[in-house]
């Protein structure tokens, strides 16, 4: 892993008595696309707003490019392109005026590249912001985040409201940024989006980071399912005792079993071989399944972030 561009250590923020985030720690390496997953209200936006120095941490530390996010906010913002979760812009300006304004606030941008982005996302720059559809509003915000080719993109649910065609275009833009060695911090609850674009993910829940890892590492801790159909009924209990079997369900009057397995399937295969097997089907878990596992039961949630 190359040097981290984002370093978050024990970051804590509360809103009065209400929960924000608690002791969140993670690093994001330069050049990676990091997915930040969590349900609504988990603390994704709070973490991002702390990174953006829009709010001040109660405890812990957040650094970007080795600079303290609060103390060196100005220097950091030169490096960042930002898409907020609920973007609000001047409703009376046209899309073109908004982009021109933010380009000026950034001290100027490559206009040819800006025009390319406008064409790429097919934005009508002549309409006022208030006249845009949700998707077009999102396009304006996306373009302003990408237009200065920032070293780090912090995107809070960036594709919300975009149609599939533009989502695909967005995926392409993220991949291009990654290929150019830029870093993307992408908060989302659209798992397929994260699965497609991210190299590592962090999962946040109720203000605590419950998992950080490479996307493939997370897939490796999978709990997968196998359904085995037999020519005659078999004792399901025989499978329940096997190593790695988490759940057993008898189907078709005992002529089939559905097994949830954690780890190797060797013992299951050997046990099944003792009976006449008709078919065997294995289901790969999606990130969706992994994600849901971390949220399905409160009492099973790890207290500390686990690294895999």
């Amino acid at each position: 892993m190359t040097a981290p561009i984002i370093e978050v250590d024990g970051l804590t923020k509360s809103y009065g008595g209400k929960r924000g985030i608690n002791e969140v720690s993670f690093d994001v390496a330069e050049g990676e696309v990091f997915g930040f997953l969590g349900p609504n209200g988990a603390g994704k936006t709070t973490t991002i707003r702390l990174l953006m120095a829009l709010i001040r941490a109660d405890g812990g530390r957040a650094r970007i490019a080795a600079l303290d996010c609060w103390e060196k906010a100005l220097e950091i913002k030169r490096l960042i392109g930002y898409v907020p979760g609920e973007p609000a812009l001047d409703r009376n300006l046209t899309g073109g005026q908004i982009l021109e304004y933010f380009a000026n606030l950034r001290g100027g941008v490559d206009r040819a590249y800006l025009k390319k982005l406008i064409e790429r996302l097919d934005l009508d720059t002549g309409r006022k912001f208030r006249q845009y559809s949700t998707g077009n509003k999102r396009k304006v915000v996306l373009i302003q985040a990408f237009m200065h080719r920032p070293r780090l993109l912090i995107l809070d649910e960036p594709t919300s409201g975009l149609d599939p065609l533009n989502q695909q275009e967005f995926d392409g833009m993220v991949k291009e940024a990654r290929d150019e060695g830029r870093t993307v911090f992408l908060s989302s609850h659209v798992l397929s989006e994260v699965e497609k674009t991210c190299t590592r993910v962090g999962i946040i829940r109720e203000g605590r980071l419950v998992k950080v890892g490479g996307i493939h590492e997370l897939m490796d801790i999978k709990r997968y399912e196998i359904t085995i159909a037999f020519a005659k009924p078999v004792p399901a209990d025989a499978f329940a005792r096997l190593e790695g079997v988490v759940e057993v369900e008898a189907l078709s009057n005992g002529s089939a079993v559905r097994l949830a397995i954690q780890g190797a399937a060797d013992a299951v295969i050997k046990e099944a071989a003792q009976y006449p097997v008709v078919s065997l089907t294995s289901y790969e878990p999606s990130l969706e399944d992994i994600f849901l596992r971390y949220y399905e039961r409160d009492d099973q949630a790890p207290k500390e972030a686990a690294r895999v």
Binding site: R78, P87, A88, L89, D90, L105, R106
Partner: peptide, 14 residues
């Protein structure tokens, strides 16, 4: 309140 400062403050403007 309407969030209009959010993106302005994400630019390098003190």
């Amino acid at each position: 309140e309407d969030g209009l400062l959010e993106i302005v403050l994400s630019t390098p403007q003190p």
